[in-house]
């Protein structure tokens, strides 16, 4: 969490700085950071005023002092970070652990106390849904080719082009839209005709049960995508008929492997 706060201290991190961060913190935090910097926000724990209220109560700071502090430090997320005394523990949580604490006031307060003020401020922005920092410029560093499984959700029979999605937080998040040029394409179209659940113009929504293997040349962050990423050079390799949709690894697993 401290390292992440340092990464975003000066606003949008440059790709080089992000790559250095990833190399330092490892795949789990690297993937978490990529999601946050791609515009995916964690569920809001509380609005800034509520968070500040919790910290004021926890530090026995009277209302008149909070008022006075707001004149010097009008940013409630920052104020809540500065009100707590400096951490006394030497250990500090990872970014992923810090995010996991954003479930209740006591859990948040316990974690916040272990962080230095600058990292606390970033945690508070994440907790209050006011974290806005995104990656600068698309990542231009070396790409890591890879493969993944994804679930077919939409198909445009005229291409045919198909949209594939990955599980994330009990829902399916669109990952990519690719042309399907498999030997089994006619069979796939036949299956799709029989399993349409909705129509949007030429697009057919199908039951999310069919799993495909995709290959790609790399992953780049893209804040406009729900997944937070673009697949570079994506292609459909195979219809993985033996795999159940419920066995497809989630988006976080893909990010962890390839960021």
């Amino acid at each position: 969490m401290i390292r992440f706060a340092r990464l975003v201290a000066q606003g949008a991190p440059q790709p080089q700085a992000f790559a250095a961060y990833q190399a330092e913190v490892g795949p789990e935090d690297g993937a978490t950071a990529l999601r946050l910097l791609s515009g995916q926000r964690p569920k809001r724990l509380a609005p800034p005023a509520t968070l500040l209220d919790w910290v004021a109560k926890a530090t026995n700071t009277p209302a008149f002092l909070i008022e006075a502090c707001l004149k010097t430090c009008p940013d409630k997320a920052e104020l809540a970070a500065l009100l707590l005394p400096p951490p006394t523990t030497a250990t500090a949580p990872t970014l992923t652990e810090a995010l996991a604490s954003l479930t209740s006031a006591p859990a948040y307060l316990a974690l916040s106390r272990t962080l230095p003020p600058k990292a606390r401020t970033i945690l508070n922005r994440l907790a209050t849904g006011t974290f806005r920092t995104k990656l600068a410029l698309p990542q231009t560093g070396p790409q890591t080719p890879g493969r993944c499984l994804a679930i077919l959700t939409l198909i445009d029979p005229s291409g045919p082009e198909a949209t594939f999605a990955l599980p994330h937080d009990n829902t399916l998040v669109p990952l990519t839209r690719l042309r399907v040029t498999l030997p089994q394409t006619p069979a796939l179209l036949a299956w799709a005709r029989a399993h349409v659940t909705d129509r949007f113009g030429p697009l057919r929504q199908v039951a999310p049960t069919q799993v495909f293997e995709l290959a790609f040349d790399g992953i780049t962050p893209n804040a406009r995508r729900k997944s937070g990423i673009d697949l570079v050079g994506g292609r459909v390799i195979a219809w993985a008929k033996v795999v159940q949709a419920c066995d497809v690894p989630p988006l976080s697993a893909l990010l962890a492997q390839h960021t």
């Binding site: 530090t59 700071t61 002092l65 006075a68 502090c69 010097t72 430090c73 104020l79 500065l82 009100l83 005394p85 400096p86 003020p117």
Partner: peptide, 8 residues
């Protein structure tokens, strides 16, 4: 003189 100032 405000409780936001704690020096390291």
């Amino acid at each position: 003189g405000l409780p936001i100032f704690h020096w390291q």
